[in-house]
Design a protein around this nucleic acid. Structure first.
Lengths: 206, 206
DNA sequence: AACTATATTGACCGGTCGGCCAGTTAGTAA
DNA sequence: TTACTAACTGGCCGACCGGTCAATATAGTT
């Protein structure tokens, strides 16, 4: 850290500041990070950060905005790549989402900080994602591939919650007896979840 | 707030301080709360807090310790009250846990702050709870009531995660299209989860 | 070469932070 | 009464906080 840009390009400078701020905020949260630390890490002066972003709060907003935009963009690309909703597609979507969170622990922490702020800015960006995912589920329901008595949006929410909280509370349930590693949990999660969304075989209907 | 104890009972004073610190820490997190605020809210001097608890960090630890102990104690009482593990018992356990988190949003936030700290102290207290719950699941598996091809500890983890994250990310998915209220989510969660843990009807085994 | 716009700096501001400490008050036991 | 202990107070400390501002440096324009 603290490698001055040399260049006088404001775009590059802003990116350097955002990168440093991102890392620090994700690691320790908004309140525990000082502008001086961000300045030091990004190799610019504190005053320059104020020049480019104004207040500390505004910088935090920009950091979140950028991170969530990148997140939503990447997830949407993955989602659109897939076609023809069926059970395997859902299974793959969950597996990929789980792997994404596994590879990007910063995203999980950013969500957690944002939720504690009761900040709703992240929900606006992926609302379209959820809408699209729920639509796919609904199509599968119409074809009789999934049970029709559940809200498609809840199916999406349920698997997102299951994946997110696994990584968010990792330090917590790593202390629980019998809990396995990422892969073992994902396997069991998929067994229960995927069988749970199948249509009931033939018990009663009314 | 700021009603001086009058009494000179250190036990009462400590409780007052812990109560005030609890509320503030849960609401805004460790870094964003000052000793002065805690002093004001609890009606004692800042110096007195240092006298009783030492550093700010030590106070935070005590707050968490006390809250998690109360949590674990309450949950264990609920768990031990129930007998004879079967599907309805699990369903009731989930419903009660969900209702508990709904009624105690502070617990959810406390868990979230603790996870972000990567603090493992909360996991030690409820490890016994999870062990007990997993044991019940295992018994149900042996009786053929639940599928036997999943780790019982994962069954517990999965429903805890599903409930916790629902409340933690409430502000987030309240912005998602089609997502319903607490009861609607719980209903769908139970449908999928409870059917998912049943033994597979008769498809293939090997 | 002069001018302009802005990126960038360093010094500085009032305020708040966590923590310390000398002193006061009030119970308690000899 | 006296002596001791611990609860409790108010004032102070140096460090650090976010933010401002006047001055400087540099790239681009005329």
């Amino acid at each position: 850290m603290n490698t001055p840009t040399g260049t006088r390009d404001p775009e590059i400078t802003r990116e350097r500041i955002l990168d440093a701020a991102h890392d620090l905020f994700v690691e320790r949260g908004f309140a525990a990070v000082s502008m001086r630390e961000i300045a030091l890490r990004s190799g610019v002066t504190k005053s320059l950060i104020h020049h480019h972003f104004g207040h500390k709060e505004a910088l935090w907003e920009r950091v979140k905005e950028r991170a969530f935009a990148a997140y939503a963009e990447g997830q949407e690309a993955e989602l659109r790549a897939a076609e023809d909703p069926d059970a395997d597609l859902l299974k793959n979507a969950i597996t990929r989402y789980f792997a994404f969170l596994q590879a990007n622990p910063g995203v999980v922490r950013l969500f957690a900080w944002t939720h504690l702020d009761e900040d709703q800015s992240c929900g606006r960006l992926d609302a379209e994602l959820v809408r699209l995912g729920a639509e796919r589920i609904r199509q599968a329901q119409e074809r009789g591939l999934f049970r029709a008595d559940v809200n498609p949006a809840h199916v999406v929410t349920m698997f997102v919650n299951g994946c997110t909280q696994w990584f968010e509370a990792r330090a917590h349930h790593s202390q629980w007896p019998g809990v396995g590693d990422d892969q073992a949990y994902l396997d069991d999660f998929l067994k229960i979840f995927m069988d749970g969304v199948l249509p009931p075989e033939r018990e009663e209907d009314a």
